[in-house]
């Protein structure tokens, strides 16, 4: 474990908690893409199946349980408890265009053609594009609540910090996983225009609004 990965995990945890609290406190999921949240729930489920088979550390296990629990709680709040506030019209990204190619790629390019390894690879590839429905929804509505932008910033920052963690591990542990690195770079690149808007607008106290 290194400071970059720890900060990354905490940033990821913060994002998940911010979103859950935002929906719970405001009793509304306006502006939130339910599809992205479903994709994240799938990412965690397919990645953390080893919860049952291998124990790495208390930290590792507890974070996985928290991530999975919060992901499903968020999906439940969006599609069940506060479904009246779910903006389905603007959450119209065709996720099948993500899941099918990612599934095919996971079968073709992986470290080991085994069930758990292919699921892990699928979850890595899926995570890199899972935010697209959310970014697409913001481009359709033309704006995002400030709390949602903080959620997205923490979410984007987490994988950016993981890239630094991978550089660190390459030099100090001679460890690298090309699949995770390539997917992580793609994932972080997808946030770039959001990062620009966040820094130039939200951090200056303005509302994030896109030229619709």
């Amino acid at each position: 474990m290194n400071i970059f990965r720890l900060t990354g995990d905490l940033s990821h945890l913060a994002a998940i908690i911010i979103l859950l609290l935002k929906i719970w406190k405001t009793r509304s999921c306006a502006g939130i893409s339910g599809k992205s949240q479903i994709l994240f729930a799938i990412v965690f489920t397919t990645r953390y199946l080893d919860l049952l088979s291998s124990f790495i550390s208390l930290y590792n296990t507890s974070m996985k349980v928290i991530y999975i629990g919060c992901a499903y709680a968020t999906v439940y709040l969006i599609y069940m408890k506060f479904r009246a506030t779910y903006d389905g019209n603007h959450d119209s990204f065709r996720v099948e265009f993500l899941v099918v190619p990612v599934g095919g790629l996971a079968v073709l390019i992986n470290h080991d053609f085994s069930f758990l390894e292919i699921l892990w690879t699928f979850s890595i590839y899926l995570e890199s594009v899972a935010i697209l429905p959310q970014l697409f929804m913001i481009s359709k509505t033309g704006e995002a609540e400030t709390i949602t932008t903080h959620y997205l910033f923490c979410l984007g920052l987490y994988r950016a910090l993981y890239i630094v963690n991978w550089i660190w591990r390459y030099y100090f542990e001679a460890f690298f996983d090309l699949i995770a690195i390539v997917a992580g770079v793609v994932q972080t690149i997808l946030y770039c225009d959001f990062f620009y808007l966040y820094v130039t607008k939200v951090l200056k106290g303005k509302k994030l609004s896109l030229p619709a």
């Binding site: 291998s54 590792n60 991530y67 992986n110 470290h111 080991d112 390894e117 963690n165 996983d177």
Partner: peptide, 10 residues
């Protein structure tokens, strides 16, 4: 393919 290292990252 690389030997299956223990996946210790989240």
């Amino acid at each position: 393919d690389s030997d299956i290292k223990q996946k210790d990252e989240l």
